[in-house]
Write a protein that binds this DNA or RNA. Structure first.
Lengths: 135, 135
DNA sequence: TTGGGTGCAAATCTTTTGCAGGTGT
DNA sequence: ACACCTGCAAAAGATTTGCACCCAA
């Protein structure tokens, strides 16, 4: 396994992700990293995001439509995505353990984890509709 | 909205998906369709899969690693993916309604749907490990 | 010094799309 | 006949990777 040396790029990427709660895509991370490191490459961003996800310092979220998103929070929580504006938000409410327990009742294998994703309309978009913004 | 004409290709794709429970990728569908229609194109497969998913006759599953997978079952159920062999299986056990209700308690928007995905090791892979197949 | 990390660019993989001709209704 | 559908191929989008050089330990 790799020895893992310090890298200012990787450190900045992690810091950036922890400072946000909007689950940026790799490209957004890249754009923001370019402010600090004008020569940073997309490859480096991807390599570090994937490395950080592997060692569990960040979380990779797929299946929200387009590109994967990354989450600086590593505690167990689930996500909500607004089908109107595409925003992805954290949701801290589910009892994962009982969910897994319940699922294992009618399953012959071993379940080690689960991810829940909710869809719907966020408060902002609901309010926009109320005020009559149709387009 | 499109008038939706009959197409033998689309019919076969749907039939194929309903006959399997292993959630094939678009490419697997394509390979199997080629047996019946040697000249079918990947584009046609993708177009029909996406059309069928749109009208709710099949389900599209993303985020299981690589390419999207497709499920001929449209009733509410969740999925399990074995982290050893990559197999994806159906799981019928969760009470989605109470889950959504619970989630809405601490959320200001409206939740209309949810998808749950479990990870772990399937029975087959557990048994293989027991019998000492390490490689 | 050494092996991991980086920038750059090409490659890969998956999915979408434009177009001209084919087909269901 | 009119739209929708198809095959083909090119394009697009996201992510990975080979390579030569750089830098932390």
């Amino acid at each position: 396994m790799a020895a893992l040396k310090f890298s200012r790029q990787r450190e900045s990427i992690k810091e950036f992700l922890m400072s946000r709660n909007d689950h940026p895509t790799a490209d957004t991370v890249y754009e923001n990293m370019k402010i600090i490191y004008p020569n940073i490459s997309l490859g480096t961003v991807y390599r570090n995001l994937s490395l950080l996800a592997d060692i569990g310092e960040i979380q990779k979220l797929s299946n929200f439509g387009g590109a994967d998103r990354f989450d600086g929070r590593t505690d167990e929580h689930c996500h909500f995505m607004c089908t109107e504006c595409g925003k992805v938000m954290d949701l801290h409410s589910q009892d994962f353990d009982s969910l897994v327990e319940k699922a294992e009742e009618n399953f012959t294998g071993r379940i080690t984890g689960c991810s829940i994703r909710f869809f719907g309309v966020c408060e902002e978009c609901i309010n926009q509709k109320k005020s009559g913004n149709s387009t």
